[in-house]
Design a protein around this nucleic acid. Structure first.
Length: 350
DNA sequence: CGTCTTTGACCCGCGC
DNA sequence: GCGCGGGTCAAAGACG
């Protein structure tokens, strides 16, 4: 299986940033364009992870979690910890705790009336619902929908994976609850929800229409439970502490990012890594997103790996950024417009 | 029988 | 107001 991790992002931060920009830079048309779909890509994630070469598990049944399981959990911190810190650096509140309230997690929309739509209002809405339910029942047999209760966007993180498998196994159990055709794309977008009760984490999986080997996975929300894996032995040989951390716990993100983070923290460990076949390519992608070259955001991150240190660089088929730039849907949501611009310029030069 | 996928319908936000 | 598109629901069916 080929896997290619490219980046992650916190879209909520983007929303805030977007709003900031829209108010502060309203006069700059160029900026307006730039932020139409801009994302922040913290440096810690601004490189593409290429897991495709020298992989011992060539068969298609290789599971995503297998790849994830090689992480070194001596350092249990998630890459997203850094990622969030990085992304949040210019912005005030860090991502909400698992028991976040809607207020906390409300997007920075000043005129949004949803800010106060937390428990009290929900209770009131419950009373209303009872009455409305009778009416609704009489009217239709549709389920009573919650009124006036806008759901704030959960923090979202997306990454691209070079894989032939759409639904990558990240250690959690997901239930597919929807599938929609994506505009301008022959590939549908699938919607998954974590099967654990009271865990509202969702993910969307979409395949790039330009590079069909690339799967875009967007995680939304925070896992409130440990990683349920796994009866199938995916964590075989994994240290217990790893299981405890397991990508769940405090981190809502795929366990792989722990490893990712770890590698970046070490900037390629000097000693040979046992699991290197999986991950030592991660830093060596020919594609390096770095729209925000601020070393202060994450000093641990080596965003410009030395090719001499990473001999596997450019071993895999180069990621088609122009193709991505033309992609629609999630890809456009996630790729920074600056990347698009740079690619455009490049194309124009050619 | 429980779990999961499929799929059409519905809801809702947004832009025009 | 209307249409469009994204996101979600839930019934029905498949599967082990």
């Amino acid at each position: 299986m080929k896997n290619l991790l490219i980046y992650a992002f916190n879209q909520q931060k983007l929303m805030e940033e977007k709003q900031k920009e829209s108010t502060q830079e309203r006069d700059s048309s160029a900026e307006k364009i730039a932020f139409s779909d801009q994302m922040m890509i913290p440096e810690s994630t601004s490189s593409l992870l290429d897991l495709s070469t020298d992989h011992p598990h060539k068969n298609s049944s290789f599971r995503f979690i297998d790849m994830l399981s090689v992480q070194d959990f001596a350092n249990p911190s998630s890459i997203f910890d850094d990622l969030l810190q990085s992304a949040a650096a210019p912005f005030p509140p860090p991502p909400p705790p698992p028991e976040y309230s809607e207020v906390v997690n409300t997007p920075a929309t000043p005129n949004s009336s949803s800010v106060s739509s937390s428990s009290a209002e929900a209770a009131a809405a419950n009373d209303d619902q009872k009455e409305e339910q009778d009416q609704e029942k009489a009217r239709k047999q549709l389920k009573p929908k919650k009124k006036s209760q806008k759901r704030p966007r959960e923090p979202r993180f997306a990454f691209m994976t070079k894989s032939e498998i759409d639904n990558l196994d990240d250690g959690y159990r997901w239930r597919k609850y929807g599938q929609k055709a994506v505009k301008n794309s022959p590939f549908p977008r699938s919607y998954y929800r974590c099967t654990s009760t009271a865990c509202g984490v969702k993910k969307r999986v979409e395949r790039s229409c330009e590079d069909t080997t690339i799967v875009v996975t967007t995680y939304e929300g925070t896992h409130l439970h440990p990683c349920p894996l796994t009866p199938r032995g995916s964590f075989a040989g994994m240290p217990e502490r790893l299981m405890l951390d397991g990508g769940g716990g405090s981190s809502s993100f795929p366990p792989m990012f722990h490893h990712h983070h770890h590698l970046y923290q070490q900037q390629l460990p000097p000693q040979p890594i046992q699991h290197q076949p999986y991950f030592h390519n991660l830093l060596t992608s020919p594609l390096s997103f770095n729209p925000n070259p601020n070393p202060n955001l994450n000093p641990n991150f080596n965003h410009n790996p030395n090719p001499a240190l990473y001999p596997n660089l450019v071993r895999e088929r180069p990621f088609s950024l122009p193709a991505l730039a033309r992609d629609d849907g999630l890809l456009q949501d996630m790729l920074p417009s600056k990347v698009f611009e740079q690619q455009k310029e490049k194309e124009e030069e050619d």
